[in-house]
Design a protein around this nucleic acid. Structure first.
Lengths: 191, 191
DNA sequence: GTACTTTCTTAATCTACATTAAGTGCCCTC
DNA sequence: GAGGGCACTTAATGTAGATTAAGAAAGTAC
């Protein structure tokens, strides 16, 4: 069974026909590392589900500094939720960090599927709830924890990513400069 | 029409019978300021909808410092999403800041209503999506903006709150100490 | 009204992290 | 295999905001 159907059937049950209908409304593509799937200022038309590879979403402040909102690997969804909901231009970029196979689901097809298979409302509600919880935790962590503690949380949340992505992006995710991250890392190694 | 039904019918349409069914599964209570509706360590059994008054959710780090996750006023929902979903003990407190009339919806009744009125899945999906977007924006703001800029955003988001709640709680929300907030405020006034 | 608690202010000192700058290693690509 | 770009490191200096401490103001309770 495809990864995306496995992902969905963690939370709801689909009949074989529903599974086929769902899949018929998606497309699967492969992308090379460094591909930008969504640019700041564009309207986000798709949700992305990752079969393999790594993606990130980020924005750029004053055209200078990048801030990573999220990473996503195999079995995760990613998109610009603001732009996807409002269908207005967003400020996120979505970029492929490691060659990836991606299932795309257009906003239109998603709406079509909500009508055709109302259970999917439930699935995406649960998915969104889980994102919200994770995001709230990260927000509180950013308010209350030190950079070292946030790094430790990152490691636990994304155990496979540490070796795979440039460390300046981990720095951005936990909210410090690459220089400070480097210093912090060597301090942790010396312990 | 009750405020909560108005709130729901912003996103979905309910028949009069569905409205009555929904309301029959809720309870309305009034609470005095300083009432704690949910304690850290408890399992959150209810979603709260605010007819009047002001609430906040916060957690306490190392039994010392409070961090405000959110404020909620008239027409907003509040709860401990993590605990509500997982039915495990959460780490949030929910407190009444200004005498309030609250509609409570138990987790059980919410699940019952999802089954009875599947459209409600859609409503709560949309509600959760909007929270997620707001939360993501706040996270990015905390990574990229100065305390002054975050204060300005707070003012725009909660224009009525500034005069109504202790300023140490605004400080906590934007992520600075009360002392620094006081200094910043007098600096802004001097301009 | 008086005492008690909580909030707010001011100011000195401190620190986690940013900024700037320079240099090193490494992977591309041609 | 030489040159150009990134990613990473190191170190000096700078700063936003924390900490500590003390007093003033404002609620709140009896």
């Amino acid at each position: 069974m495809s990864l995306i159907i496995q992902n969905i059937t963690k939370h709801i049950t689909l009949t074989p026909e529903e599974q086929l209908l769902f899949l018929s409304k998606t497309e699967t593509h492969t992308f090379k590392a460094k591909t930008i799937l969504l640019n700041s200022g564009q309207i986000c038309k798709h949700s992305y589900f990752i079969n393999s590879g790594i993606l990130r979403s980020f924005n750029i402040n004053d055209n200078i500094v990048e801030y990573v909102l999220s990473f996503a690997c195999e079995g995760w969804w990613i998109g610009d939720m603001y732009s996807l909901i409002s269908q207005k231009p967003g400020n996120l970029f979505i970029e492929v960090l490691e060659d990836a196979e991606i299932v795309t689901l257009s906003k239109e097809n998603q709406e079509y599927l909500y009508a055709a298979i109302p259970k999917l409302e439930r699935f995406f509600r649960i998915l969104t709830e889980n994102s919200l919880v994770a995001n709230q935790e990260r927000l509180m962590d950013n308010l209350s924890l030190s950079a070292e503690e946030r790094f430790e949380k990152f490691r636990r949340k994304y155990p496979t990513l540490l070796q795979k992505i440039p460390q300046k992006q981990i720095a951005s995710y936990i909210g410090v400069t690459p220089e400070f991250f480097s210093k912090m890392k060597s301090k942790l190694l010396r312990k």
